[in-house]
Design a protein around this nucleic acid. Structure first.
Length: 408
DNA sequence: TCTGGGGTCCTAGGACCC
DNA sequence: TCTGGGGTCCTAGGACCC
């Protein structure tokens, strides 16, 4: 049995299987648009685009009917509507997407505890330990796809392979509503004919670089000396690409990933020149960032201001402060000072953003206030007491704990 | 045609220390 | 007088992904 995929290729739906192919990549189809259609069944089968209505908005998601007109994610809405004037545009509802995402991730969790959520609509699963109980990878994936549909009404695609990279490629080729298993011994035959853009990390710029070297397929990259690649792309990117082109991808499925930064940014409907408006926005965003830090039980040390001017040039200025913080006023104070240093009276500002980096758990900072053994034990006890009572996210060292006036 | 908002990772240069 | 090498931290920018 076979069917045509979204790009007109034949995709096998035969139960090709390989007990050693235990990595799965699940990807919900046209996720945001599909969720919207659950509430608007009257629009099923029509070109629907999810995105803002402002003049500067972009396409967040599009149904396959809209994609037929050349509408794609991240495309400016103005262009999308020119290509597909009959499209129905719906505003996004991120709360709904988060809800369905949680449901689907928990269904994945019923298959195996080894679930790595990649984004709101994607996850890797390692089903090596689930085979005895649930069957072959093909059987597991088929059952999971059915269960996702039965419990949410959403379709998804699953790629199955021996590595993450190949599994992700496979789910992409299986879309929409498909399943593709790439047995271990078929990997290179599957991979090498694909275009270089299939490689993870190859976007427009890198593709251009590689084409200049005369490389068009993944197989071409595989047969290029690594030194040539590193010379053109840098040490890390060159080595990584060469490895991926031979399907070498040692990354395992990991469940825990720590956040490296938290930030917010806005693009104004019209460029802003009024400094009062900008400062108000910076205050609002500093508070938003602080709220998210506290909810995550994190504090940050590096404050980053991002500005994009009317001509789209973008700068960022950062400052690392002495102490960690999760307080909106403190973040605002720094960001305002940074802004003052780059402020130009005539500048037209298109976007501003605030971000916090160098994050660490709030509890660590509390412990860091003491440097003696007994002080440490005392602090540890205080942290436990507070987090037991209120949850770890409630720890705000600056407010809760006064450092000893005379340390040591 | 005119470019969102959330992120991650990499590079390169400079400061500073040993 | 001219000149080390490694390591870490910080900053700015860019490519990329969903």
């Amino acid at each position: 049995m076979s069917k045509q995929d979204g790009r007109g290729r034949q995709v096998s739906t035969d139960p090709i299987d390989d007990p050693a192919a235990t990595i799965m990549h699940l990807d919900l189809d046209a996720f945001f648009a599909s969720v919207e259609l659950l509430e608007r069944p009257d629009l099923v089968g029509l070109p629907v685009i999810v995105g803002g209505r402002g003049g500067r908005s972009v396409v967040t998601a599009a149904t396959y009917e809209a994609r037929k007109y050349g509408v794609n994610s991240a495309m400016p809405m103005s262009i999308a509507l020119r290509r597909c004037p009959n499209a129905i545009v719906l505003e996004p509802h991120f709360d709904r997407y988060r809800h369905f995402s949680t449901v689907v991730m928990s269904l994945c969790g019923d298959v195996t505890p080894l679930v790595e959520q990649l984004s709101i609509d994607e996850a890797f699963l390692d089903v090596a330990g689930a085979r005895r109980l649930l069957g072959t990878p093909w059987e597991i994936a088929t059952a999971l796809r059915r269960r996702v549909f039965d419990e949410t009404g959403l379709t998804c695609s699953i790629g199955v392979a021996t590595t993450k990279f190949i599994a992700k490629l496979a789910s992409g080729l299986a879309k929409p509503d498909g399943l593709l298993v790439v047995p271990g011994d078929a990997t290179l035959g599957f991979l090498h004919p694909l275009p270089i853009s299939a490689l993870w990390g190859v976007g427009a710029k890198t593709a251009e670089q590689l084409e200049r070297l005369g490389l068009r397929t993944v197989g071409d990259v595989a047969n290029t000396p690594p030194a040539t690649l590193t010379k053109a792309l840098g040490a890390a990117a060159g080595a990584k690409l060469h490895d991926l082109s031979w399907a070498r991808d040692p990354r395992g499925v990991t469940t825990a990933r720590e956040e490296k930064s938290i930030g917010h940014e806005v693009t104004f409907e019209y460029d802003v020149t009024d400094a009062t408006v900008l400062r108000r926005e910076l205050l609002r965003m500093s508070d938003q960032v602080a709220v998210r830090l506290r909810r995550a039980g994190l504090i940050g040390r590096t404050v980053v201001l991002k500005l994009r001017y009317g001509d789209f040039t973008t700068i960022s200025r950062s400052r690392t402060i002495e102490e960690h913080t999760d307080l909106g006023r403190r973040i605002y104070e720094e960001v305002l000072d940074i802004y003052a240093a780059v402020e130009r009276p005539d500048a037209r500002i298109r976007l501003i953003g605030v971000r916090m980096e160098q994050l660490s758990p709030a509890a660590d900072a509390v412990l860091g206030l003491w440097d003696t053994d007994e002080g440490w034990r005392e602090a540890e006890g205080a942290v436990d007491a507070v987090s037991d009572r209120f949850g770890r996210g409630s720890l705000r060292p600056a407010a809760l704990v006064k450092p000893p006036s005379n340390p040591t």
